[in-house]
Design a protein around this nucleic acid. Structure first.
Length: 435
RNA sequence: CGGGGAGUGGCGCAGCCUGGUAGCGCACCUGGUUUGGGACCAGGGGGUCGAAGGUUCGAAUCCUUUCUCCCCGACCA
């Protein structure tokens, strides 16, 4: 993409309303624009990152056996009356009426909707287990939206729902999602620690939240140092029993500040105190909804069995902020390669120099042909402006092309994260970006 | 929901106390000079000062009402 054709409204100054670093950087890098409290438009750069995160989340869901569907954002109130949550959910649920005065709502989550799909379609225990996921916009009318997309009112969430015949099956489904989440966050370049959690309004008796470690995180967390040694990028076979892996990941102490037990028997030498952001939450809640809503299957002995359910959520839009919180420096964002909006930036330092323009144009064209996502700063601005822009938007690599190097067929390849610079030929730079 | 703060060109702010019809920096447009870390000079465009009502000869400024946004706390992907 040529920057002259792109839409990248960056700013030099910090917007007054943005307090935390990810919010500031997202606004400054032209990723999002606020429309109302907790409601954001996604501009090209931000949307690209959002889609990359979503793609990784989807890939890991599919690997774990979840099937993609898409449920509506608007749901009828009556459905929520069946589960009893229409009254329980409170003011956080956005309630609306249609033209016929029917009570509707903008979905804050989808247990009811998915249970309705299930009960209307699945009759036999032979069709179990099933695990359905979607990535959909949610609305929760938070009392106090803040931190940009980290706590928006409208937000993009991957949520899925498992249906099993019995508790053993449900726990297998739960474990699969547990591992899928570890892998997902690892692929996003994050260190996420699963912590035993309250089940809250969703209900149930087995639940973990996944907390991403970030110095600027919202809540204080306490965890055993052995978590640092565990590799979340588990080479998993979902047909096998995952319980040993789960046991390994839940053996050590980990708690958020509200659940932290200062008197726990963990050796203080092993306890690490850090800060974190909740990016995922998984629940097993048994037959709470299947009982209330009549989601049953016929069992092998002609009996009617309420299905065992679990639900699993990842805050996709929140992850954009969380990744920035976990990965930035004083110059701007430092994207992990897996979610970077472009892999490499190409800076032509002298847009008025024919040799530089030709070298930059050629390299850019070769990148495009090789399928390397490159953002080519072909603007007429001075070098400093271009460096600052690249550093702000945080592409993993950038290549500078200027008159000094062009004479000797050299370009400068810079690693955003380490700051390491090497002078190489354009061919070598291209090769490294492909590799 | 309790407590605090703020609304003035796209962004950051001053002006308000002490009413006289809006200013600065950045950004933007035109021309020129520049060009390896956010250039310089000259010229220019853009704001009914959140909204409504009131006081006054006159309101960004004073009064009333209202809306919105932000921050801290209790709750949530």
């Amino acid at each position: 993409m040529r920057l002259s054709n792109y839409f990248l409204p960056t700013t030099k100054e910090n917007p007054a309303e943005a307090e935390i670093v990810s919010h500031r950087l997202m606004l400054r890098a032209g990723m999002v624009r606020q429309l109302s409290a907790g409601i954001y438009s996604w501009l090209p750069l931000g949307f690209k990152v959002l889609q990359k995160i979503e793609a990784i989340v989807r890939e890991e869901q599919e690997k774990a056996g979840a099937l993609a569907i898409l449920m509506p954002t608007i749901q009828p109130a009556d459905l929520w009356r069946e589960s009893g949550r229409y009254d329980d959910y409170g003011a956080e649920m956005l309630r609306i009426k249609d033209r016929k005065d029917r009570e509707m709502l903008y979905g804050p989550t989808n247990e009811e909707a998915v249970t309705d799909i299930f009960r209307g379609t699945v009759r036999s225990y032979k069709d179990l287990p099933k695990n359905l996921y979607h990535v959909q916009w949610k609305f929760r009318d938070e009392v106090r939206p803040r931190f940009g997309v980290m706590r928006g009112r409208e937000f993009l969430m991957k949520d899925n729902y498992s249906f099993d015949l019995d508790k053993e099956g449900a726990i297998r489904s739960y474990n699969a999602m547990f591992v899928a989440y570890l892998r997902t966050f690892a692929r996003l370049g994050l260190k996420a620690i699963p912590m035993a959690a309250d089940t809250g309004p969703i209900g149930g008796d087995l639940s973990h939240e996944f907390i991403v470690l970030a110095e600027t995180g919202e809540s204080e967390v306490y965890y055993h140092k052995d978590f640092e040694a565990l590799d979340p990028m588990i080479d998993v076979d979902y047909t096998k029993d995952l319980q040993p892996t789960i046991d390994q990941w839940t053996a050590n102490y980990a708690a958020t500040d509200e659940k932290h037990d200062a008197n726990s028997d963990i050796d203080s030498a092993d306890l690490i105190t850090g800060r974190g952001i909740e990016v995922g939450h998984i629940f097993y809640f048994g037959t709470k909804y299947s009982d209330a809503m009549g989601a049953t299957v016929q069992g092998p002995n002609d009996d009617t069995i309420a299905v065992e359910m679990g639900s699993y959520g990842i805050g996709v839009s929140r992850l954009v902020g969380a990744i920035i919180e976990a990965s930035h420096d004083d110059k701007g964002i430092v994207w992990p390669e897996s979610v970077a909006p472009f892999k490499v930036g190409i800076i032509n330092i002298r847009a008025d120099d024919d040799a530089c323009v030709e070298a930059a144009d050629t390299l850019y064209k070769q990148m495009e042909e090789a399928g390397v996502e490159a953002l080519y700063d072909d603007r007429a601005d001075r070098a400093g402006v271009k460096f600052s822009t690249m550093e702000l938007i945080g592409l993993p690599w950038f290549i500078t092309i200027g008159p000094r190097g062009v004479k000797n067929n050299l370009v400068e390849l810079v690693n955003r994260k380490t700051g390491e610079k090497v002078e190489v030929s354009p061919e070598e730079a291209l090769k490294r970006m492909i590799g």
